[in-house]
Computed example of a mutant assay.
Amino acid sequence: MKAKFLSLLLLVCGLLSNANIQAQPLELIDIKINQLTLSVELADSPKERAKGLMGRKTAKPGMLFVYNSPQETAFWMANTLIPLDLAYIDEKGVIVSIIQMQAMDESTHPSPGEVIGALEMELGWYAKHQVKVGDKIEFVLADQ
């Protein structure tokens, strides 16, 4: 399962890195958490990850940050106008931490170790949908 998740992640990263998406809104990708299927924006380049949801007035539809390999990282809310929930995701697709971040807060929120990604949603989203640490995030392939 770990190999399958990493293979899908690398495939998505490779396909999108070749596309000219910088001048357009971020690509949407379908993911599944528990019984929920949703489309979120994919931030998989350093530039997209650095900008994230800065300057936006809404977190919808959510943003999935993906890294090429597992790494320690940290998020902050500089220039982010809205409060957010952030879930760190390990290389197996498992949520290893969920934190709440306040708008315009410049303190850092480090990952609890190496992660392959993070999912930002509007504040309270994880509690509202009963998503918790230990739940799994999976990519939904177009032919499923």
Rank of each mutant, 00 (worst) to 15 (best):
M1P: 05
M1N: 11
A3N: 15
A3Q: 15
L9R: 09
L16D: 12
L16A: 08
S17P: 00
N20V: 00
Q22K: 10
Q24R: 10
Q24C: 07
E27S: 06
L28H: 12
D30E: 15
I31W: 02
K32L: 09
S45K: 06
K47S: 11
E48T: 13
R49L: 05
M54A: 15
K57Y: 04
T58I: 10
G62Q: 09
L64E: 07
F65M: 11
F65D: 05
N68H: 02
N68K: 15
N68Q: 13
S69L: 14
E72C: 11
F75G: 04
W76T: 07
A78H: 12
T80I: 03
T80R: 02
L86W: 07
A87Y: 08
D90C: 07
D90S: 07
E91C: 09
K92G: 13
S97M: 14
M101N: 04
E106Y: 03
T108I: 09
H109R: 10
H109I: 01
P110M: 09
S111T: 08
P112I: 11
G113Y: 08
A118E: 06
E120Q: 11
E120S: 09
E122R: 00
A127Q: 14
K128H: 08
Q130K: 13
K132A: 14
V133H: 03
D135T: 04
E138Q: 13
